[in-house]
């Protein structure tokens, strides 16, 4: 599903080159649930941005579902983000001015052609995360855990190949975190590929595979059953 070979990322700030990732190599199979760990400043976020096509690597190649993405322009990358990738952020990133349902429908704003069953898909996803009775609410009327469930529904609505989650429980209490992780477990069981950044070991415990970064390189890559 994801094939990274020798991904290098170097930032140029004030004429000084700061290397962040030096040659990342790993492959994620379809249906895997991978936790990405490591101390802060090791390039986790940079790697996630590259995986999410929000940033381009300085070197190396990235294939998603067999397609080489290094040659695509902004329009092409945007289309892949829209159809193939679902994002879940630490700070939820919901649009405060529109309803919960409209938030879930937001990706379809950029989907061509617009699916005729968009609303039904969004509604059934909201029901599946237990928010069937909150669809017309504004996001700020919901608790943090509920907001993150809306964000998960939004990430799933276009039926992406992979879900990229950046510390999805980092802003939640333990009860809400538990609920969110249950949902991730469920969508993993449904066969989706998940890559999740976290630095909490008990969150990482939900994944079957933990990749640890250190100083911009893969330090450990463990699978468990």
């Amino acid at each position: 599903m994801i094939e990274l070979s020798n991904i290098v990322k170097t930032y140029l700030t004030g004429g000084v080159e700061t290397p962040v990732l030096h040659g990342i190599n790993f492959t994620v199979e379809e249906g895997e649930f991978v936790a990405l760990m490591g101390p802060s400043g090791t390039g986790k976020s940079t790697l996630m941005n590259i995986l999410g096509l929000l940033d381009r690597p300085t070197g190396g190649s990235y294939r998603l579902a067999g397609q080489d993405l290094t040659t695509l322009d902004d329009n092409g990358l945007s289309a892949i983000r829209n159809k193939r990738i679902g994002f879940v952020f630490q700070l939820f990133h919901l649009l405060p001015r529109v309803s919960v349902l409209q938030n879930v429908l937001l990706p379809f704003l950029y989907t061509e052609p617009y699916p005729p069953d968009a609303k039904e898909r969004a509604k059934s996803l909201l029901q599946s995360v237990g928010l069937g009775d909150r669809m017309s609410f504004k996001p700020n009327a919901l608790s943090g855990g509920q907001q993150q469930r809306v964000a998960i529904a939004r990430a799933l609505v276009n039926e992406p190949s992979i879900i990229l989650a950046d510390e999805p429980t980092g802003n939640l209490d333990s009860v809400a975190s538990g609920e969110i992780l249950e949902i991730f477990d469920r969508i993993h069981r449904e066969g989706r590929t998940i890559v999740m950044v976290t630095h909490e070991p008990d969150v990482a415990a939900h994944a079957q595979r933990v990749i640890t970064l250190k100083d911009g390189a893969v330090a450990t890559d463990e699978r468990r059953n």
């Binding site: 999410g52 929000l54 329009n75 945007s78 983000r81 994002f87 937001l106 990706p107 704003l109 950029y110």
Partner: peptide, 9 residues
């Protein structure tokens, strides 16, 4: 957010 969700420039 919108760029992440697939909005082109």
């Amino acid at each position: 957010l919108k760029r992440a969700l697939g909005a082109r420039q």
